[in-house]
Design a protein around this nucleic acid. Structure first.
Lengths: 332, 332
DNA sequence: TTTTTTTGCGAAAACGCTTCCATCTCGAAA
DNA sequence: TTTCGAGATGGAAGCGTTTTCGCAAAAAAA
């Protein structure tokens, strides 16, 4: 590989001068600068990221935590879209993306140690189990960090407006004449709490009594659980006329139960998802499309602000999505 | 951050000794080695990846090319599952994964230059447009590389057995009594060529004449194109009784056309996908599940072999998948 | 005992880069 | 004329490692 030294020799200048020319420093003659740049280009020079990092303590590398909870991982459209958007924004700004894991040198270690070892300039926690103490350790370690869909104290975050999402969906069902609206909620997380708030709020505002048997626990991205929960709802003496699932994917499980019960959608029962994934939209599922592009971009912008220290805002941005009406909620 | 020097001072030995102790070199006393290791642990020492890379020319970092063709990108289940599997195998072996892009320092450049700049030990080309000259440049640059679903000369690869896949699917349709089997093939790539071979071979072996109007061009992962192609097939004087789609996702487009034509699956027409993605399986789509776990693992193993120089096999591994019968092919 | 071998450890260079500071030149001000 | 300051350039240190080589001490052989 061609190094600064090679260019220096070819140009009859010092290594220091070459470095300055290439980095656009001020104290250098215009003509020498241009010459050095031209020669460097000709020789196909590329700076050595390791050497530069060693000297400057900046890697221009962002660690991304993206954990494969329940085998969904990268294949989970919501998260992978966010990652996609985050990544492309980061690349525009000159940062690369490396996955964080809990090994260093092939040995079990911790997320934080891995990040320190790799000297990431910052980390983005996109998809993770926020109850894992290792995650909290990382988010609050002092390394610039940003979290998505969860907020730690003193760590900037961006979250999807889950309350609003469930409000809009519930309101939509109400506007179509439904009052027996069930909600199968997801895992016990912040996201779920926020969504429940939206659900309760909508019903309350519409003066619809809340029925406990209509609010049952499910899990995110789990077909079997959704199927079982749906069966449970359908077996009530007075079953709901509309079911809201934890997410679009879970809906596919509920659908199975509904069909097996000999019911049709939306004539016999209405259904609603959450996320706005492609395959759900194709089926015309009524859902709430989260704005993954904004989530990723904003998260990245905040992280880079934190890294570079300008206008650093240690707050929580809330991004709202949009209702996708579909055709799975019947007018009553 | 604590460095070798800090440990050396605390232990009253030289930096060289500490390095050797921590790296398990031979010429060092057992007791000093243990002491150094203990102190290092206590002080929370982590070696500096940049410094080490600078000195050794090894980054233990693998570049992964994963390009978002037609907006599918990370959300494409087939590729993201492969990446997932590749990643986890790499991490076990002490390698990290960084995404390749065509910028360096935020400026437009090329994939190869980006990889050189980052000094990746090797690169994996998982999802890309293999006709792009920049990809070929990268694959044949001399940097250890592995490609998936495409083979360049002198570059190890692993490909899914596409010929076999289409043979099995076609044979399955034939075994269910079909003879008017259409195939909407994907983009003009190696993968498509191989699959067409399988399709033709199956029909030929079964003495079923090949009808040109049944073999039409579609695209991978494109719902609209699949919908149009399906319409075209359905409008034939003698439409097929079974349609094989480029992939599971495309099927969702075809499904639309079929329903709009007032037909039902599989009573009026049988359908077959390819890939074995979750949502397709849920719907009972007859498909061919590719073995993404093996694809990722084998690719990673080959790449690391190439990097580390042991038993380096510059060949092409073929991985077969398995038929998922589903219930979308009627018995005739 | 002396000689040889083995073992344990350290000095120092090098990897490629950035940056502080010193030096030198030259035109402008005094 | 001398003095100054600005502009251009280079020397050199240092970032945290690894690794070669040399040296001393201890152990083994003579």
């Amino acid at each position: 590989m061609v190094s600064l030294k090679d260019i220096a020799e070819k140009c009859n200048v010092s290594v220091a001068t070459v470095s300055k020319a290439l980095n656009g420093k001020e104290d250098i003659g215009k003509s020498t600068r241009d010459k050095i740049r031209r020669i460097a280009e000709e020789m196909g020079y590329l700076s050595n990221a390791s050497a530069r990092a060693l000297k400057t303590n900046r890697t221009y590398n962002i660690g991304v935590l993206f954990i494969d909870q329940k085998e969904a991982g990268l294949a989970h459209e919501y998260f992978s879209k966010i990652l996609e958007s985050f990544k492309s924004h980061a690349e525009d700004k000159g940062y690369d993306i490396t996955f964080i894991n809990r090994t260093v040198g092939g040995m079990q270690s911790s997320y934080l140690k891995h990040c320190i070892y790799r000297s990431f300039d910052g980390v983005a926690i996109i998809c993770a189990d926020f109850t894992d103490p290792q995650i909290e350790e990382l988010a609050t370690s002092g390394i610039p960090a940003v979290t998505i869909d969860y907020t730690y104290p003193d760590c900037p975050s961006v979250i999807s407006d889950n309350t609003k999402g469930l409000q809009e969906l519930t309101n939509y069902a109400i506007s179509r004449g439904h009052t027996r609206i069930a909600y199968i909620y997801g895992d016990d997380t912040e996201v779920t709490k926020k969504r429940l708030m939206g659900y309760y709020d909508s019903l309350y505002s519409a003066n619809i009594p809340i029925r406990n048997e209509y609010v049952i626990a499910g899990q995110f991205h789990d077909i079997d659980v959704a199927e079982a929960a749906t069966k449970q709802l359908l077996s009530l003496k007075e079953p709901p006329t509309c079911i809201i699932f934890p997410d679009d994917y879970s809906y596919f499980g509920g659908r199975k139960a509904i069909f097996e019960a000999g019911l049709s959608i939306p004539n016999d029962i209405s259904v609603i998802g959450y996320d706005g994934i492609q395959t759900a939209k194709i089926y015309g599922l009524t859902t709430y499309a989260q704005d993954t592009t904004s989530l990723g971009t904003i998260a990245c912008r905040k992280l880079i602000d934190a890294i570079e220290g300008n206008s650093y805002s240690n707050d929580c941005s809330i991004v709202s999505g949009s209702l996708f009406p579909g055709n799975t909620v019947a007018q009553i």
